[in-house]
């Protein structure tokens, strides 16, 4: 048995709420919402409200799918800065074979969702690096590989070196080492995968 109360929304839509009737007082939160619209109102309403709801619903449904697919096929930008770039390349060589984790370097920032900053960033290059970062489509992540990218490394005091690339844009994972071994790089990428799962489901 249900009791029906009707209320009018500001947009003019009628929302019918079903409330439980029992011994206990009625719950504050409506348990079920039904959107009731007449046929002639359907098209303008669909444009105003339903699209948003549908989009939201689709997002909730598909976001885990996209996250699952995205985190298992991170495409880093093919960008070699300094010493760590050689270990980065070795990580894609025969012995470590990073591609078995779905990590494939791409040469265009438009195709990438991961920026691995593998080396020293100078002030002269910082503008270009920010441009590269902004050219990458969302969702995107950044890994600071090695001590130079993390905090300037041995060149911290130099006049031309950015003391830590997080002065330029946010970093998700820092990898220590000068340079880190390829295993450490792979570990950093796997940690980023875990982080995406924890953060976005």
């Amino acid at each position: 048995m249900t009791d029906t109360t009707a209320s009018t929304h500001s947009a003019g839509t009628t929302v019918v709420t079903h409330l439980h009737k029992g011994d206990s007082p009625a719950p504050e939160v409506p348990t079920e919402q039904i959107l009731a619209v007449s046929a002639k109102e359907f098209i303008p309403l669909w444009k105003e409200n339903l699209q948003g709801l549908v989009n939201k619903g689709m997002d909730t449904l598909t976001q885990p799918l996209f996250n699952w697919a995205g985190r298992n096929s991170l495409f880093p930008l093919h960008l070699g800065l300094a010493c760590c770039a050689i270990e980065f390349a070795a990580g894609f060589g025969a012995r470590w074979d990073a591609e078995r984790f779905g990590v494939v370097p791409r040469s265009s920032p438009r195709q990438c969702d991961l920026l691995i900053i593998n080396g020293t960033v100078t002030w002269k290059f910082s503008h270009k690096l920010i441009t590269l970062w902004e050219q990458m489509p969302e969702p995107k992540w950044a890994i600071a590989m090695g001590n130079c990218a993390t905090g300037g490394g041995p060149f911290r005091t130099a006049y031309s070196v950015v003391p830590g690339v997080d002065k330029l844009f946010p970093i998700d994972v820092y990898i220590a080492g000068c340079p880190p071994r390829p295993e450490a790089m792979l570990d950093g990428i796997l940690r980023l995968e875990r982080l995406i799962r924890e953060r976005h489901g």
């Binding site: 020293t120 100078t122 002269k124 290059f125 041995p154 060149f155 005091t157 130099a158 006049y159 070196v161």
Partner: peptide
């Protein structure tokens, strides 16, 4: 110059 890290200057220190 995009990777100029001032090695010669740091050497002096």
């Amino acid at each position: 110059g995009y990777l100029h890290r001032g090695i010669e200057k740091i050497c002096e220190y």
